[in-house]
Every structure is written in C-alpha cells, then in structure tokens.
C-alpha cells in the first residue's frame, strides 16, 4: 500500500458517497446516468467475488463491501426510490454496446482461463468504459450540476492516482499487471476532456456547460 493508492481509493470512496448524498438530500437523481451506475454495480459485483475465496486485509475487505453496498444503494435510489426524477429520456447510451464487446474481450485476453479470473478481467474492462453513459448524457443535455462535476472529478482523480501507484509499484516492487494498466489508462483518457472543462469552468464558479 502506498500513498497514491490510498488517496486514490479514498477519492473513489468520496466520489461514490458524494453521489449518494447528492441524490439523497436533493431527493432527485436528475442528470445522473442510471446506466453508468448499473454498470458500476456490475463491475464491483464481478470483481469482488474473491471476497469469498481470499482474504487480503481488513482494509481490502471492508472497502470492497462498502463499494458494493454503495453501488447497489445508488442503483436503488435511481431506479426505485426516486424513479420519478430519473432522466431516462437523456440516458440513451446503449449499455449492451459496452457489455457485450467487453465480455468477449475478457474471454479472449485474460491472465487465466478460469471463471473467477474471466469475471475479474470483465470487471476491469467494464470499469474502464462504464462512465460513458454518464459522459454521453452530459454531452446530450450540454451541462452538469456542479456536484455531478465534483463526482466525475473525484472518479477521474482516483484513476489518475492509480496510474501513479502503478508507476511507483513498478519501480519499487517490479510489480505490474498489464490488463489493469491498459484498461486504467483507457479509463483515465476518457476523463481528460472532462478534466479540461472542469478546470476551466467549475473551478471558476460556473456550471459545467459545453460550448454550443
């Protein structure tokens, strides 16, 4: 465990909790892509099946459980409790266009052809593109509320910190996992355009809206 990973994990946790709190306190999930949240729930479920097979640390186990619970709580708020506020007309990204190719790729490119390993690989690939419905929704409506922007910034920050963590681990321990690194870089690149908008607009107190 190094400081980059710890801060990355905490940034990830902050993003998840911030989104939950926003939906809960505004009693609304307007502007949030339910599809992205469903995909994240699927990501955590398929990745953390090793909760049943291996124990790494109390930190590791508790973070996994918290991520899974928060992901399902978010999905519940969007699709059940505050369903009336869900903006499904704008959440039109076809999630199957992500899940099917990613599933195929997980079968073809993985560390080991076993069920748990394929599901882990699937979750890594899926996480790298799971934010696309949310980014698509923002590009469709042309704007995002500032909390939604902070959420995306924390998620992107988590990815960027993980890349620094991998560089650090490569030089200090000779550790690297090519699947995680390639997928992680793809995921971080997806946030780049958003980062630019965030820094130029949200930080200067404006709502994030796309240039017409």
């Amino acid at each position: 465990m190094n400081v980059f990973r710890l801060v990355g994990d905490l940034s990830h946790l902050l993003a998840i909790i911030m989104l939950l709190k926003k939906i809960w306190s505004s009693r609304s999930c307007a502007g949030i892509s339910g599809k992205s949240q469903l995909l994240f729930a699927l990501v955590f479920t398929t990745r953390y099946l090793d909760l049943f097979t291996s124990f790494i640390s109390v930190y590791n186990t508790s973070m996994k459980v918290i991520y899974i619970l928060c992901a399902y709580a978010t999905v519940y708020l969007i699709y059940v409790k505050f369903k009336a506020t869900y903006d499904h007309n704008h959440d039109t990204f076809r999630a199957e266009f992500l899940v099917v190719p990613v599933g195929g790729l997980a079968f073809l490119v993985n560390h080991d052809f076993t069920p748990l390993e394929i599901l882990w690989t699937f979750s890594i690939y899926l996480e790298s593109v799971a934010i696309m419905p949310q980014l698509f929704m923002i590009s469709k409506t042309g704007e995002a509320e500032s909390i939604t922007s902070h959420y995306l910034f924390c998620l992107g920050g988590y990815r960027a910190l993980y890349i620094i963590n991998w560089l650090y681990r490569f030089y200090s321990e000779g550790f690297f996992d090519l699947i995680a690194i390639v997928a992680g870089c793809v995921q971080t690149i997806l946030y780049c355009d958003f980062f630019y908008l965030y820094i130029t607009k949200v930080i200067y107190g404006q709502k994030l809206s796309l240039p017409a």
């Binding site: 994990d9 090793d50 590791n60 996994k64 991520y67 882990w120």
Partner: peptide, 10 residues
C-alpha cells in the same frame, strides 16, 4: 508477473 490470486488492489 503477478499471480491471478494476488489481487490486492481495489
């Protein structure tokens, strides 16, 4: 190269 079971990252 990491063994598949050694997944310590989240």
């Amino acid at each position: 190269y990491r063994q598949p079971h050694e997944k310590d990252e989240l």
